[in-house]
Write a protein that binds this DNA or RNA. Structure first.
Lengths: 177, 177
DNA sequence: GTACCCATGTAAAGAGTTACATGATTTC
DNA sequence: GAAATCATGTAACTCTTTACATGGGTAC
């Protein structure tokens, strides 16, 4: 059992999902490719942690349900100590050598990033609004975890935007002096 | 040439470094293990992008210097489009199912995270102060990139702290209602 | 009917992690 | 002189990415 498998089981706690759907939700906090998800789901099925249901309307679609054994190992995993989050961001390696770029190149680097994260902020603002619009208490509680993560994403993207603006003003000042 | 190799070359632009030293700097934005760094440096040497100097005082230590060819391929890489940052954070998978935890377990999860990031904030505050203390203009410019990255780290860790506090208050409210 | 998204899968190649292994230097 | 930290390296294993492959459903 690798981390991805535990995460998939976690997500099935909220509701039964297809692999495709899991992929969408996952991108909020865990990079992965469909090839990895489908093979992981296959193994989880073999191991009896999930059951598979063929969707009625979509022939190709498979809906995965968590079994009792699955629930049990998720519960065990939840209390284990967390591995430190891992991040890899090649943009920052470029920032590392920003002092050697000309002002225009440095600006381009920062402005591309800024624009990207501004879009992200808008996207996540919309998504959190969707949650706010939910009136049903049970549905709202079911989505609590997703909402907390979404809100965190929004906060982080906002922080990225603020950093970009600050970094740009910092290099601008050095340029004029 | 993989991304890590380009990043190592980037870092050598600032100043010649040993593999051990590169590892320290790298953790700011790119997770890696020494095994990976030493093998990558070996290949970069074979390819003529770096030269190796044996440190005078430390027999085991090897200092890597960027060659002209090395500089040239870094310059090419700098203008290439950036791959999206990748992040993997299993803590967030646990938050995803927070609605199913009892209040105490959820609190423990969030408070552990909060404490961890409070420590990080302190650590990075100290490091940015070290930069602020630099008076030499040339030295200050040489460290500009590192400073920008450090400041970003600080902003991000502060945002994590704020999110933890907010998330805790959110689940507290649900608990009392 | 065609373009786009939904939906799943396998195989090969590439990258990252863990374990094994060693030894020098500094600090107390 | 013992412990902690500095310092480097190889090998096996695991995980991730990319490429190959296919086909259904929906909107225009």
């Amino acid at each position: 059992m690798n981390t991805l498998s535990y995460i998939l089981l976690c997500m099935l706690v909220r509701k039964p999902c297809s692999g495709y759907e899991l992929k969408q939700y996952l991108t909020l906090f865990w990079e992965s490719h469909h090839s990895q998800i489908y093979t992981a789901l296959g193994k989880l099925h073999e191991q009896g942690y999930v059951t598979v249901e063929n969707d009625a309307t979509h022939k190709q679609k498979k809906i995965y349900h968590l079994t009792e054994t699955g629930k049990a190992i998720v519960a065990e995993w939840l209390v284990e100590e967390n591995k430190a989050p891992s991040q890899r961001d090649e943009f920052l390696a470029k920032v590392y050598v920003i002092a050697l770029m000309d002002h225009q190149q440095a600006t381009e680097l920062l402005q591309d990033r800024l624009q990207h994260y501004r879009k992200m902020v808008k996207k996540y603002e919309q998504k959190t609004e969707e949650y706010d619009a939910i009136t049903d208490t049970i549905e709202k509680e079911r989505n609590l975890g997703r909402y907390l993560i979404l809100e965190r994403r929004l906060i982080m993207c906002t922080a990225e935007v603020e950093w970009c603006v600050w970094a740009q003003s910092t290099i601008d000042q050095l340029n004029t002096n």
